[in-house]
Nucleic acid binder design. Structure first.
Lengths: 339, 339
DNA sequence: TTGTAGGCGTTATCAG
DNA sequence: CTGATAACGCCTACAA
């Protein structure tokens, strides 16, 4: 099956390639008659422009790249979905790469995408990354670039985030409001800003309510997994028998903790209240149902793409573009685990 | 930042573009000296070949398309992960599109990908699709094509599947082995082959064990959602008070059912045993832990890509390629819900 | 060993 | 209104 080209249509119709091209792109300076003839012929031959040639000419591919720490992940897969859906609306396709929380991979993938000459890059940082050179290189090469959720504050690009500190503050304060006085925090890994901010929010809420911050009540995850929640809950119980609340960096960790507490028949929320973060679907389904912070993944995807689109449009028209940061609202979801 | 081209290197070095090109591609007929000079210059200028131009010349883009019914989905996101990871190994990038179980969208997306001239297409059918024209068109246009999981038996392409019928048979037989005599089946939507095969497996297991098939015990989901599991469980309980086992088309449906049964204090597995399908992570975490069929999503992604790769390689070398079907093994995961 | 020339398929400019 | 011509950046016979 040979591909149809402008040339073939031109030959069949006995006109020039130029005219065919113009007719197909609805240029005003083509007679109705020839335009119709071309359109008809193109249709009957199932002509579609060779996108490789179009890319070369127009210097854009209507394709963007997305680098994400983990594909199998409730929050991130919602972001992906939002990005893909929104991109499709304006005719953009999305290439997805997974950094698996590895800086080394992330660096390679950024390079790969730039060499592919995608029109823009969307990225959420791996746990190992900060304001590293590969990100600066994106800026230097002037490739439209938006970071979301796990960002680096020091990179000068558009960003879509939530206020992790405030949300964590609210979560902790919610626990306090329900009467908790000794609150443990199972926090995320040391490096990502995300985890730091949530920890800070926790600390601030304690301070505001004159609860002494006790750093032995803070447990640090390596990867924020179910098992870590389970194991840390066990550790918390053995090390501190006076705990009455746990704020977990993410729902899956909270569910791990709940699983352990259920196992040893500690009653939630009566003896210990638990709150998570992210609003994973699963939280509604376990016993007791998990209170959490709703983090709008899909919307974050949508906003991220739109910000990128804006920048790509400016680039095309060689207009200046000033990076912006969008902060999306979160809200507390109160369920049984903190009643 | 203007892009570096072969031409610029050539001018800077006072040699021809051809020589530069050859040097970079390690042609044997370039002197060591010029080769080194070129390599060095290319490096210092951060030259990377313009992929648009390369695509146009070589007629391939090292990019494949993936159409998937739903991105936010335990099983499918594992497949995606497998595909991306495997593709990256051979330098392929993956464009992901979501059909949202809509045939109309799927048709558009297939068209989109072909017009983009991706090197190959990976697809899992939407619930509305069968052996439709858009799939035949892929074959007709001779685009390398692999279907996985939700396939159409009538399309002549490579496939990666599990034996749904056998797996469902095993699940049902497992229930029977545990003493169940009245087994309901919450099945998937009417159209997809998947759901049909699982239903058939259920039926065959009953037959083999001389249990009368009662079609009033079969409940049909529209979308295989949590709520459907919940609602059908309620319906089952009111319509048939003698049920002692439920085989659900997928874990999320099973978890919906379990949630209802827990609510009305029907004891699982004592009064009713429940088994799901897919081995979603969540099944390990609820009470009681869910028995299920393990469906290897990641591997399915890996195998699918490799099959596609084979076909793409044959295409490039204009060798013939005969479609193959790979059937991946499944296994029963026995947990508390069928003890 | 190096370079010339033509082409991949489109689009843009400019002259007729 | 139409068409010739020249790019876009790279690759590859074929000449020199």
């Amino acid at each position: 099956m040979k591909d149809i080209t402008l040339k073939e249509i031109a030959i069949k119709l006995g006109i020039s390639i130029t005219t065919v091209s113009k007719a197909l792109k609805n240029y005003p300076d083509v007679s109705e008659k020839t335009k119709n003839a071309v359109l008809e012929m193109a249709k009957s031959l199932h002509f579609t422009p060779n996108s490789f040639a179009v890319n070369l000419r127009t210097r854009e591919s209507k394709t963007i790249g997305l680098i994400i720490p983990e594909v199998v992940h409730h929050f991130f897969s919602n972001v992906i979905k939002g990005i893909i859906a929104e991109a499709e609306k304006s005719g953009y396709l999305v290439i997805i790469l997974q950094s698996s929380e590895s800086k080394e991979l992330e660096i390679k993938q950024v390079d790969l995408l730039m060499n592919k000459r995608v029109d823009g890059i969307l990225l959420s940082l791996s746990n190992e990354s900060n304001d590293d050179d590969h990100l600066k290189e994106i800026i230097r090469r002037d490739v439209p670039f938006v970071m979301f959720d796990k960002i680096s504050k020091l990179i000068n690009c558009s960003k879509v985030i939530i206020n992790d500190q405030k949300a964590a503050f609210n979560a902790t304060e919610h626990l306090i409001g329900k009467g908790c006085k000794r609150i443990a925090h199972i926090r995320g890994p040391v490096n990502p800003q995300n985890a730091i901010d949530r920890f800070l929010g926790y600390k601030k809420a304690l301070e505001k309510h004159n609860i002494l911050f006790d750093k032995s009540l803070v447990y640090t995850c390596k990867g924020s997994e179910f098992e870590e929640g389970y194991d840390f809950a066990k550790q918390i119980i053995t090390e501190h028998n006076d705990i009455d609340g746990i704020f977990c960096v993410t729902d899956i960790v909270a569910i791990g903790a709940i699983n352990y507490l259920n196992e040893i028949n500690i009653s939630i929320p009566k003896q210990i209240k638990v709150i998570g973060f992210s609003n994973w679907f699963m939280g509604q389904v376990i016993t007791p149902k998990l209170s959490t912070i709703d983090q709008p993944g899909y919307d974050m995807g949508v906003e991220s793409f739109n910000l990128l689109l804006e920048e790509m449009n400016c680039r095309r028209e060689t207009k200046p573009f000033t990076p912006r940061t969008i902060e999306l609202p979160t809200k507390i979801i109160e369920r049984e685990s903190t009643l």
